[in-house]
Write a protein that binds this DNA or RNA. Structure first.
Length: 290
DNA sequence: AACTACTCCTGGAGGC
DNA sequence: TGCCTCCAGGAGTAGT
């Protein structure tokens, strides 16, 4: 569930509470959490210099030429509690709640810091992964993913999107967008939202989109991601946002009315993923569905 | 090379 | 209540 906006929001919040702190202890409950050596013990004594992000990777930049690269996958969550046990930063998957007692049985890693605070990493599905690298090896590590442009940077444009989609001309546009080489950081929710906003059916073949549609899609991706990052995605997903900011607009809203045309939102399956569309706003021409 | 299907996991929902 | 199946889904990988 954590996609670019969730990870970026988390990065910003943790930047305020973690930078300058030194790690006193680091433990993992599940050995496979740290994909390969070194394990968490190497982090002890290192100071957190900055937090950065690439696609859905959360990157802890540490003293001594180390980086810790986290991927929350579907259900990873991070909670930072101060010495009194108050949550001072949190993000990722909202279940269990950020106020739940920590640690609990799904707390898979724990980091204690020099100010008495503690960072808990939880993951009810155990898919999340952590990798510790030398900082000078990080660029090569990221290069192996051949990640596409970040949607909120100048590198992302309708031209860049067209180029990315041209890699999969015979593939449905939804799985093409989920490929991190096309655009970095999109996941199932934001792809559905972007396609709805651009009025493009997820099963349209990537190669069938007109230039105008690709422009619309690029604008939609940028605005959907920007909106989520700007407005604080966790609160939006918790339903606490104002109605005009209700989000998601289609994903997970089977049976609700399309906010644009009032037609019922239907759930389908595209590329093996649960997919939500408005049948009126996002037409699927017969010529490309055959 | 490119695409599909399966896998990793657990918990929650729904059927009976 | 309880047992069963299905589903959630990022990304790695095995198979076609």
């Amino acid at each position: 569930m954590p996609e670019l906006p969730e990870v970026e929001t988390l990065r910003r919040d943790l930047s305020r509470t973690l930078v300058g702190r030194t790690i006193l202890t680091a433990t993992a409950r599940i050995p496979k959490l740290f994909v390969e050596p070194p394990g968490p013990e190497i982090l002890v004594g290192h100071t957190i210099l900055a937090l950065s992000r690439r696609a859905k990777f959360l990157i802890w930049e540490l003293s001594g030429d180390l980086v810790m690269v986290m991927h929350l996958k579907l259900a990873g969550q991070i909670i930072h509690r101060d010495a009194e046990g108050r949550t001072i930063a949190s993000g990722g998957h909202p279940v269990p709640g950020f106020t739940a007692p920590m640690p609990h049985k799904q707390t898979n890693a724990t980091f204690t810091l020099d100010d008495g605070s503690t960072v808990y990493m939880t993951d009810i599905r155990q898919f999340a992964r952590i990798r510790v690298l030398y900082a000078h090896d990080l660029p090569a590590f990221l290069r192996t993913y051949r990640l596409g442009p970040e949607p909120l940077t100048r590198a992302f444009s309708s031209r860049a999107l067209a180029k990315g989609l041209s890699r999969h001309p015979r593939l449905a546009v939804k799985p093409a967008l989920l490929d991190q080489r096309t655009v970095a950081g999109l996941g199932n929710i934001y792809v559905d939202e972007s396609l709805w906003q651009a009025r493009i059916h997820p099963e349209r073949l990537a190669g069938s989109l007109s230039e105008e549609e690709i422009r619309r899609l690029a604008r939609a991706i940028r605005s959907v991601i920007d909106h989520a990052v700007t407005n604080g995605v966790a609160e939006i997903l918790n339903g606490r946002a104002a109605p005009e900011h209700a989000f998601p607009r289609v994903h997970g809203r089977e049976g609700a009315r399309c906010p644009r045309c009032r037609r019922e939102i239907v759930k389908t399956r595209v590329g093996g993923r649960g997919t939500y569309v408005c049948g009126r706003c996002q037409p699927l021409p017969l010529s490309v569905s055959a």
